[in-house]
Design a protein around this nucleic acid. Structure first.
Lengths: 237, 237
DNA sequence: CGCCTACTTGAGTCGAGTCAAGAACCGTGG
DNA sequence: CCACGGTTCTTGACTCGACTCAAGTAGGCG
């Protein structure tokens, strides 16, 4: 097993976990490893689709812009998450690094060769696409039918699980995204996001030791505000 | 080629078009054909995932309910559309027939056997999943970042293409869904939907010969309402 | 013709957006 | 170490778009 993979946070990700320690050597050898500084782009929405990616560390946002500058963030992408489920000739989202990011990159042509060698890989990528659909349905539901405070509480519980998967659970978790990013993910304005954070803090449902660090004080009440359906319950899908 | 397929509106759908006239006999023989009356359900969100479907005629809504009765419609499904991209043990949406619907049903186990016989089928289903992701991104964008009038104009132009694919383009198109359905798709209320329809009619951008029939009178202006957000509506109002 | 459902319209309210200002934080350089 | 400038976050006052509540109208069907 290559050293790079044996210590990688994505080793147990949906993508890489399909390979055993022998097989993953082949998989890793056909990849390019990329490093992107915070604020850089993994891909642009107008780029021709030539590669897929699996994030090894850091956090990205997948986002789309309008001509007049409005932005919608479609997803926050963490270590172990796959990027490249797309149809058509261009990605239709840009991948912006919120922190410094490292990722493995495969050329689509190489991936197709790997499909022949490892049929279960293709199957696995289909599973990943299904999960993406499930996650987007949850987000659709929240955007369409929830109030600001419900959106934020849902978001906090959702990001907590993603962040803890990387950092481990030490009682608090870091938000790698700004308030503006949160607003653009939830279809709100930055002022509304800020006001709701303040409200939740004053109600002692959460604590904010720093602006970008959240400690959940009363999980039950927080859940009841957001109507959160646990991420690992298998309910999503 | 089976008679059923040779006259089916879904013969050229992403799913069925992967087969030639000989092959599709095998595919069709392993299917069950279903008929669902308007108002009936193709599947319920809590059902265990055992089947996939391809719609032959009619229109469905894929929707999710909250405990308090709120509803979010995730998609409108037309003839030729595939249903069953899901992850986890249950579908997470219900499929409700807006009109009478006919569909082909395959058992997941049978589908896996067909994958062995027709590897390109599995590939095709992945492509369908990718398209679903793309469509949901568009919807997310609209729900998160557009005003009521922009949502409706986008919706009308979107449904027109789906409807014309089935009915052909005769200048007007039918809405198989109620105003409530439209509201639950776009994250609005029925009153707001109704008011926007009236507004578009009074501005002579559309005509409504019947409540459920739409004729687009000024496509360019309609497009400009949904796309650009000019003088009447800036970035967030 | 009358019932039921869907759609429309009006009046009033409220949640979230807009505009504007100030506070906290961060990195940089003296 | 602190001063400075830029960025992000917070807060306040006000506005407005969409929701709520409440009638009333139009279609479809028995």
């Amino acid at each position: 097993m290559s050293i790079a993979c044996s210590t990688c946070a994505a080793r147990n990700s949906p993508l890489c976990s399909v390979f055993d320690d022998e097989e993953i050597k082949v998989f890793y050898d056909s990849a390019l490893t990329l490093s992107i500084p915070a604020g850089g782009y993994l891909l642009h929405e107008e780029d021709k689709v030539k590669h897929v990616y699996n994030v090894s560390s850091g956090t990205l946002s997948l986002e789309r812009l309008t001509s007049d500058g409005a932005r919608q963030i479609m997803a926050f992408v963490y270590a172990g998450d796959f990027v490249g489920i797309t149809s058509g000739i261009s990605y239709s989202v840009s991948g912006r690094a919120l922190t410094s990011v490292s990722a493995c990159q495969w050329h689509l042509k190489d991936l197709e060769c790997l499909y022949v060698q490892f049929p279960k890989l293709e199957e696995r990528i289909y599973e990943i696409a299904s999960r993406v659909v499930a996650a987007m349905m949850d987000q659709l539901f929240v955007l369409g039918r929830k109030k600001a405070i419900e959106k934020i509480t849902w978001f906090l519980l959702f990001i907590e699980t993603k962040q803890n998967r990387v950092d481990g659970n030490n009682g608090a978790f870091k938000l790698p995204m700004t308030r503006v990013d949160i607003a653009d993910y939830l279809g709100l304005t930055v002022e509304t996001v800020s006001r709701v954070f303040t409200k939740l803090r004053e109600a002692e449902l959460i604590a904010l030791p720093q602006a970008w660090t959240v400690r959940i004080l009363d999980r039950e009440r927080l859940r009841s505000v957001g109507g959160y359906r646990g991420a690992s319950s298998g309910r999503k899908g």
